[in-house]
């Protein structure tokens, strides 16, 4: 396979970081604007897809091993379940932080307003946890399917021909 041209590599380099920042914005503003953990996590995983397409797997795996993404995924799921259990004094998944003041507990005015960032209690925490889980999971799926495609060319599976130099 011929290596991709310098135009494609430059554009993918620029837009990968743009996609990362935009996805994190969607995750953090999940309780104010349309979006949330799942959508923002999918947008951040696009960053991994861009780097994979333009540079090949070795460049992406030099940033972080697959164990790093697996750790992110597991940590997100654990934070999610723990936040659910912490509200167990009332019910499972009770929103015990909403409206209490503090970091996540600002009170929003009723009706259309301009939005307060540190509101929404555990919903904001769960957005970030689910965002972490989706980032790790989708990046792992992309990396391993890319490895699976590479296995067709040479059965040893290690080296990638062309595509990254």
């Amino acid at each position: 396979m011929n290596p991709l041209s310098v135009v494609v590599r430059t554009i993918c380099d620029v837009f990968a970081w743009f996609m990362g920042i935009y996805g994190i914005y969607i995750i953090i503003h999940g309780h104010l604007t349309p979006g949330g953990g799942f959508q923002g996590g999918a947008v951040v995983a696009t960053m991994a897809a861009f780097l994979l397409v333009s540079h090949g797997g070795k460049k992406l795996l030099s940033f972080a091993k697959p164990g790093f993404y697996s750790g992110i995924e597991t940590a997100g799921l654990l934070i999610f379940i723990t936040t659910g259990f912490l509200g167990l004094s009332a019910t499972f998944f009770y929103n015990f932080l909403a409206g209490r003041g503090g970091l996540f507990g600002a009170v929003v005015p009723i009706g259309p307003n301009s939005g307060i960032l540190n509101s929404a209690g555990t919903i904001s925490v769960m957005n970030m946890a689910v965002g972490l889980e989706v980032i790790g999971g989708l990046s792992l799926i992309l990396i391993y399917m890319f490895k699976g495609i590479r296995l067709f060319d040479d059965q040893t599976g290690g080296s990638e021909t062309g595509h990254d130099r």
Binding site: H31, P34, G36, F93, A98, G115, S119, A120, I123, N127
Partner: peptide
């Protein structure tokens, strides 16, 4: 949703709070 859970996005309130079991 705004009064009980102090959140602006009602879809997020349903996904993560009223129906948290589904999301789990």
């Amino acid at each position: 949703a705004q009064q009980e859970r102090s959140v602006n996005n009602v879809v997020t309130a349903i996904v993560f709070d009223y129906r948290g079991f589904d999301t789990l």
